[in-house]
Simulated assay, not measured.
Amino acid sequence: MPKDSAGHLVPGTVSATRPVPSSIPRPEYVGKKGPSPFTGSDGYSPEKIALIRESGRIAAQAIQAVGRAIRPGVTTEELDAIGHEFVISHGAYPSTLGYRGYPKSLCSSVNEVICHGIPDDTVLENGDIVNIDITAFKNGVHGDSNVTFIVGEASTAVTDLVERTRESLARGIKAVAPGREVNVIGRAIESYAKRFGYGVVRDFTGHGVGEAFHSGLIIPHYDSAPAYNTVIEPGMVFTIEPMLTLGTHEWDMWADDWTVTTKDKSITAQFEHTLVVTERGAEILTLP
């Protein structure tokens, strides 16, 4: 099992890429080194928002399907197979597969992995936590979500971190309103996280999503004012995805150029929704 003598994760064995039926349309970046520059808008028509909601629902339901299989003894590779099959069975493409060379259909980030963990032969153990991040592409648009699951029973400190990270996402969403700057979102998240002494990851952020997997719009999860001052407008679609830690917000990157861990190997949790800005606030587009 890929953990070292201290119980920290080490890279495991990654299996071959899973096939996607040729009948399912691919995002434009598949087969390329990276996506083409996005020149569109982060604002969408009601018709396009309905399509993003459909993609988002598929992603959310796929995460639920994966969550039902999470237990001690299962591998993250097995979870990837479940997520992959769910997404393609609904006529959608798993957006991470082939994005900048990423080899799998979901991200599975265990314990100290902040984000972008690659599914492999890592065996989940009682007390672990694992974040499952799935994005579905259908009808030319992406819907992006993630949820952190507890494997079996975890310590009170870890359980509290997971629930408070979920709450921090809710508070970030509640802060969204037309006319405000996007930095209000991170201010709401960090002010809550600081009450418990949690680290708030800064360098991995929410983002514009829809026709592009990542549009270029950045949604920070810490108090960044006035550095990020994009004004929130009705019809904008973006993700909020706070990452909180039991220690530092600083991070290391594995040699695979994807897996991001806390520098002090402290446990970290994350939750994410795609949302659209309404006249009064925000509507979540990634509900099952």
Score class of each variant (00 low, 15 high):
Arg164Pro: 12
Asp133Gln: 05
Phe149Asn: 12
Asp133Ala: 15
Asn183Phe: 13
Gly98Gln: 06
Asp160Lys: 15
Gly143Trp: 04
Lys174Gly: 09
Pro103Leu: 08
Val162Cys: 05
Ser168Ile: 06
Ile134Phe: 00
Lys174Pro: 07
Val123Ser: 10
Val130Thr: 10
Asp160Thr: 14
Arg187Cys: 08
Glu125Gly: 09
Arg180Asp: 10
Asn146Ala: 06
Lys138Leu: 07
Val184Gln: 00
Ile132Phe: 00
Asn126Lys: 03
Ser191His: 09
Asp144Lys: 09
Lys104Gly: 05
Thr156Gly: 08
Thr159Lys: 15
Ile129Ser: 03
Asp120Ala: 07
Leu161Ala: 10
Glu163Arg: 14
Arg187Glu: 10
Ala177Ser: 15
Asn111Met: 12
Val130Leu: 05
Arg164Leu: 14
Cys115Ile: 15
Thr165Cys: 14
Ala188Phe: 06
Tyr99Glu: 11
Gly152Glu: 07
Val176Thr: 07
Glu190Arg: 03
Ile150Asp: 03
Glu190Ala: 05
Gly172Asn: 00
Asp121Asn: 15
Ser108Ala: 15
Leu106Asp: 07
Tyr102Arg: 09
Tyr192Leu: 01
Ile189Val: 15
Arg166Lys: 14
Ala188Lys: 05
Lys174Ile: 06
Arg180Ile: 13
Gly172Thr: 01
Ile189Glu: 02
Ile173Gln: 07
Lys104Phe: 11
Leu124Arg: 00
Asn139Trp: 04
Ile150Phe: 02
Arg166Met: 11
Cys115Glu: 07
Ala136Val: 04
Arg180Thr: 14
Arg100Val: 13
Ser109Ile: 04
Pro178His: 05
Phe149His: 13
Ile150Arg: 05
Ala193Tyr: 00
Gly172Arg: 00
Val176Phe: 11
Val113Phe: 04
Ala175Cys: 13
Gly186Gln: 00
Gly186Leu: 00
Thr122Asn: 09
Tyr192Lys: 03
Thr156Trp: 12
Tyr192Cys: 00
Asp160Met: 12
Ile189Trp: 01
Lys104Pro: 04
Gly179Glu: 04
Glu112Tyr: 07
Tyr102Gln: 10
Asp121Val: 06
Val182Glu: 04
Thr135Glu: 09
Ile118His: 11
